[in-house]
Structures are given as structure tokens and as C-alpha cells.
Design a protein around this nucleic acid. Structure first.
Lengths: 213, 213
DNA sequence: AAGAATAACTAAACACTGTTCAGTAATATT
DNA sequence: AATATTACTGAACAGTGTTTAGTTATTCTT
């Protein structure tokens, strides 16, 4: 087999691998996660279900691949914020970006931060999940810089970062899972949940604002 | 059929309905949620799978029934705290209770606050979910009382309550889902995740503490 | 007490799911 | 042209939630 043909075939194989991924991503975000079957993905790319297993050993491996994509997307959201020089302003913008990311891509958000399966897959692979760590590193660094200009003076940087992340994550998951909506509707406080979320976020920001010495 | 026999049969039916529930609860907390099948529940109570559908129309209806139990358990955790007179101390204790509840009953916690299915079932039923609202009402009331003694003066009570709930929920879910562990291990900061959680919580409490005018 | 009605229960099936494996068809190498 | 390799798939396995037709067992009526 001459070199050109080998390359073409290799390219085709990688194309197909990507096709599976994009088909999966589309179905996941459309139908939701549990509702997407290997058979449905196979049908979308017009191959047999068994073929998918030649490119991904598991359904989890597919999820894991999307995982990496998702994190790259999130981190790219954050990287725009480097233009904001004031670290506290940057921290506030990060929070808003985080919420925005979760609201715009609820299924991907769940994939990254709620589902256990891809995480277990990562645990066996060691190698990656670097993307995920980088996102947290950005938060850690920003909190550190905030401390540099007088915020959060006597608080542990790591603990505070976890606490902030938890608040963001809690807001996003309560919104996505529908539990926030349920409590809100029961109270008829606020029908527009996006306003409720941003209201709660602004209130949280207000509490952080007061932590300047 | 005389009255005594009718009662006995009725009693037996309700017993069986409860037996299904306790079997389901046991399996859920043991094997996890997704891993528990109707067939497994049926085998545990030594009945046919089809019998379960005579007592519960859905798997979701079973989940929903456990839902109510779970909320009662959570609220009972909170009711002990009525002995704490200082509202801010009570709020702090509530947070700790909430975390403790989630750590001791991770599957029930997920059932109450993460899973969508039982929530959708509630949406069709209207009637209940009162238990869930009561839990949030307790938080709302406590935050209000804190404002009465000078805390959170210029903050919206409802928004702050949502924010606090989000923080608690975020900590618990990140812990339960394993995502907290993953980031922590990658940093080798803290192997004991329970210490990490309580550390993050204490840091959060410290931020709230400073919001007294 | 015998027959009709009702209630409780279940075997078996349906339409799914993820996954595996033997086997086929197409391509490349010798 | 014959062989080896690669890409792919049909069919099956073991499992899922759920439904339905049918079988017992119990109760009511005559």
C-alpha cells in the first residue's frame, strides 16, 4: 500500500471518529443524555452500532471525549476575561461567564460537573483531566490576586476558592435540574428563573464585595 | 366479606406497599440509583415484577414516595436546631446539618436535589412537595431573623437564601459526585475530603460572619 | 354448598438499552 | 491470482422499564 493511500485511510478513520463525536454531541444536547443510545448515534452517522465500538471502547469513552471538548469551551470562556485587569472585577466576570456557560450548554455542563461516569473513566486514564484542573487553577489564581489588592485577607485561598466554586456550581445545578424553578414557582416570587439566578448571583457578589479590608 | 377481613386485607396491601418502598430504599442506598431495577426490588420482596405496578404506576412514583420520606428526614434534622436561640448560630448549625445529612445519605440527597425524574412527577401531581418547600421556608425564616439582629442588612432575604442554599448544595454535590475529590487529589492538597468540605464550609461561614453591621 | 364475581398475582412478551463476536465484503500485499 | 489485512455488520446476549393476557385464590350471591 503506497503512502498516499495509507494517509487517506488514516484521515478517513479520524474523520469518522470525529463524526461519531459530533453526532453524539448533537444528540446529547438535543435529547438529553440518558435518552441518547449508541444505536441512535450509529443511525445518525449511518453506520452499524458495532462500528462505534471500533472507534470508542465504551459509551463512557465517548462521553469522556466530549468532556475534553466541553472543558476547552469553558476555559476559552475564561480566557477572554484576561483583558480585565482588576482581579476582583475579573472574578465577578468569571462567575457570570460560568453561569452563562452553564445556562447556554446545560447538557455539557452536566457532563462536566454532574455525571459520575466520565469522571470514573478519567480516574483510570490518569493522563488527562488537565483541562478541568486548569479551570480551577484560573479561579485559584484570581482569588490570590484579589487577596493581593486587599480582598479576603484572612481567608485560606484554596478553601475560599472551593467555596466560591460550590456557590456557582450550586446555582447552576439547581437551575438546570429544575429544583430552583420548583421552589420559586411554589412561592410565585419570580417566574423568570434567569433573573432569579442573576439576582442570587448579584447578592452573592455583594457579600464578597464587603470582604475588602 | 365481613368488615374485619376487609380491614385485614387493606392493612396487608398497605404493608406490601411499604415493603416495596423499604426494599427500594435499601437497594438504592446500597447499589446506587441507576443500578437498582424493578426486578431486583421484586426479588427482594419475593413478588413478581408486575406486582409492583399494581402498587406504583411507575419507577418514578416509587422514587417520589422515597422523596417524601427523605424530606421528612431532612426537616427532622433541622427541627432539632430550634433549641439554638441565636439565629446566626442556628444558621451555621443548619449548614452543618445539611452537609451532614448529605454526607450520611448521599443517595437520598441525590434523590431529593439532583434527580430530575421525581421532580417531574411532582409537577404533575401538584398536591405535595410541601416538605421540600418547608425546608426552604426554614432557611428563609432563619435568614430573616439574622437580619433582625444586624446581619445581611442591605441584602434581599430571598436572594441571599437562594445564594446560601446554592453554596451548600454545590459543596454537597461536588463532594458526592466525586468532582471535588478529583480536583483535590490532582493538587494533593487534602486527601481527607470530609475535612476539605468542612474547611470550605468554615471559610464560607467566616465570610458570612463579616456581614454584620 | 355451588356458581358467579372479584381481587391478587404472575408468566410472557414488547420495545428498548449497552456490548460482544462470528462472519462478510472490500481492499492491499505478495 | 491467491492470500492477508482491514472495515464493517447481523445477530445475539443479558439486561432494562412496562404492559397485557391469563391464572389462581378469595369473596359474594343465590
Amino acid at each position: 500500500m503506497d503512502m498516499g493511500v495509507a494517509e487517506r485511510k488514516e484521515r478517513h478513520k479520524e474523520d469518522l471518529k470525529k463524526d461519531i463525536l459530533t453526532a453524539a454531541k448533537e444528540l446529547f444536547t438535543q435529547k438529553g443524555f440518558e435518552a441518547t443510545s449508541i444505536r441512535a448515534i450509529a443511525e445518525k452517522i449511518e453506520y452499524s452500532p458495532a462500528t462505534i465500538y471500533l472507534y470508542y471502547k465504551d459509551k463512557n469513552e465517548i462521553v469522556h471525549a466530549l468532556h475534553q471538548d466541553g472543558f476547552r469551551l469553558l476555559v476559552s470562556h475564561f480566557e477572554v476575561l484576561n483583558t480585565v485587569t482588576n482581579p476582583f472585577e475579573r472574578l465577578k466576570a468569571m462567575g457570570r461567564s460560568y453561569i452563562q456557560f452553564a445556562m447556554q450548554n446545560p447538557d455539557i455542563y452536566q457532563l462536566l460537573f454532574v455525571m459520575k461516569e466520565p469522571l470514573e473513566h478519567v480516574a483510570n486514564c490518569f493522563e488527562d483531566w488537565h483541562e478541568g484542573d486548569r479551570a480551577f487553577d484560573i479561579l485559584l489564581k484570581t482569588v490570590g490576586e484579589c487577596q493581593g489588592i486587599g480582598y479576603f485577607k484572612d481567608l485560606d485561598r484554596t478553601m475560599l476558592s472551593f467555596s466560591i466554586w460550590s456557590t456557582m456550581h450550586g446555582m447552576c445545578t439547581l437551575r438546570i435540574s429544575g429544583h430552583l424553578g420548583h421552589v420559586a414557582i411554589a412561592r410565585a416570587n419570580q417566574v423568570d428563573l434567569d433573573h432569579l439566578i442573576s439576582g442570587a448571583y448579584e447578592t452573592y457578589v455583594a457579600t464578597l464585595e464587603k470582604l475588602k479590608s
